[in-house]
Design a protein around this nucleic acid. Structure first.
Lengths: 292, 292
DNA sequence: CTCATGACATGCATTTTTGCATACTATGTC
DNA sequence: GACATAGTATGCAAAAATGCATGTCATGAG
């Protein structure tokens, strides 16, 4: 009956291979050496007697059977994370591992204070903060709680709106003064990815404007603005917390809300609840910094 | 993120522990040493930070978390066997592993001929025959095809009725002659488990009867009957193939049908189809041996 | 009470798995 | 065409998992 050696973990390797595309990437995600991934895949193939990947010059390409294996392995992963969630839900202790994710700049500007308060109240909690703009998969439990800039929690998650937001134009004090003094001079915009021209709403009062430079990262935009290189559009909270001066070039614009979201099963768990007890009052108290 | 070492196989150990009740039994089923099962469980507990089993003097007893883990692991197992089935279904070759299960005595009396024919036609197939009265779990893919004595394929399986059956009373030639000669003498019955008296229908014509001995195994009943120890009720095919003489003590009685059953996904696969092509003609040709 | 049995724990030697260093092959850049 | 890069293969030594032998503890039979 059980000639086959255990191979659930081999299927996991197949899943990660399909998901990440190369041995190296899969290995990184699995936190093992890529050699191991190759061998696990080979084992799985032997165990099932099927070729799961074709070894082409450009790398491993999944066969139909390989895709099917990954599909079923994904179900296995769902069950496994389901178990993890059930444990997290049942865990009423305010201690042990707890992970949150949020955009870097929001952490730097505000959440760091919430985190400090939370850890002060609950020193037993081993908090992991994943500062990332990437949308981590909460279903897969890449984090317990996410603070996201989005319109809604999304289909499969539950959440709570923390605050509304606006964007506005900011510049260094020096640049701000210059603009005030000589409003007719050319406005140098610091753009974010895919901007090709200055925002329309700004052209009414300051038609003499151009995109001076562009970045794909908001930290870079922020740095350039602080260095006095020009005017940038950014969330109100960011400009303010960075010590920039709001300039009237672009009037405040509505922007995406900030939400705290979690998986349905986790939302009411002890540690998430405790974190929310720090989070909500903080945002209530600081709501003014997010809007004009 | 992935501090946890891979642990899907550890969950499998938990599942088997819950299913089989002791380290030794789980280990046997997993085909590993029981020490390994204990260590896997310990690893899983560490990895999830939860006690899955309580170590009581009478052995491991699953905690709520342990039962939950087993439940989720069962879902993982379902996904895994689902993949195996998909492979089997897609496998159009008439070669490689193929397993069937059937009651021992039916194999000995008839199926051995079907098997011989099948292997003659398809010598590349590596056939495993699991002769067992236990109902193997075809969902879990303990066998690809089962020949069963039952009323219907069951909820989750599909199948085909091979033949009806009757039981009757059989005895050795010598005993049969004695009964014919002296019908009024005491009839010694050889009973099967839980029989407490001779079958009612036999008492009308042969009221002078008693249960002489009882077995819990039909092979034993058969042996005792062949040894001339008495009369036994058994499936018609069995008495006939064993060279026993049918005696009129108990007239033929309706008995459970014989079915070939398989998982829905496997039923139409190449090897199952090929086997059925031997099986159905055989039962058509030998139908008379199962009924009066 | 003794003995046999079943269930588990543990130390140690062995086998297996893993990681590392190195080699190989395509692709694309200058 | 030299060179850097991405992706994979492989031999070998280190690390980890496994099996085995032995020991403990409770239970039940005689």
């Amino acid at each position: 009956m059980h000639v086959m050696r255990e191979n659930w973990d081999d299927l996991r390797a197949v899943l990660f291979m399909v998901r990440h595309g190369s041995l190296a990437a899969a290995a990184t995600a699995l936190d093992v050496n890529y050699t191991t991934v190759a061998r696990r895949i080979a084992q799985a193939e032997e165990s099932y007697g099927v070729l799961l990947f074709e070894r082409l010059p450009q790398g491993y390409v999944a066969t139909d059977a390989g895709l099917l294996a990954a599909c079923e392995a994904e179900k296995m992963e769902d069950a496994e994370t389901g178990f993890r969630r059930a444990l997290a839900k049942a865990d009423t202790r305010l201690s042990g591992p707890f992970s949150i994710t949020a955009p870097q700049l929001l952490i730097a500007a505000h959440l760091c204070h919430v985190i400090e308060e939370f850890l002060g109240k609950h020193p037993e909690v081993e908090l992991t903060v994943r500062a990332s703009n990437a949308l981590l998969n909460l279903n897969r439990r890449e984090a317990d709680l996410a603070i996201r800039i989005s319109e809604s929690p999304g289909d499969t998650l539950v959440g709570r709106r923390l605050t509304g937001q606006q964007t506005a134009s900011f510049a260094s004090a020096e640049v701000a003064t210059r603009i005030e003094t000589a409003p007719e001079a050319t406005i140098d915009w610091i753009g974010f990815t895919y901007w090709t021209k200055p925002p329309k709403a700004s052209l009414e009062n300051y038609p003499n404007a151009r995109i001076k430079m562009q970045f794909d990262d908001m930290s870079a935009v922020l740095g350039a603005t602080q260095a006095g290189l020009g005017v940038a559009r950014m969330p109100m909270f960011l400009g303010r917390s960075a010590g920039l001066t709001q300039v009237p070039v672009l009037p405040p614009q509505p922007y995406t809300d900030i939400w705290a979201v979690a998986h349905r099963d986790i939302w009411a768990s002890a540690k998430v609840t405790a974190f929310k007890e720090c989070l909500l009052p903080y945002f209530k108290a600081h709501a003014a910094e997010f809007m004009a």
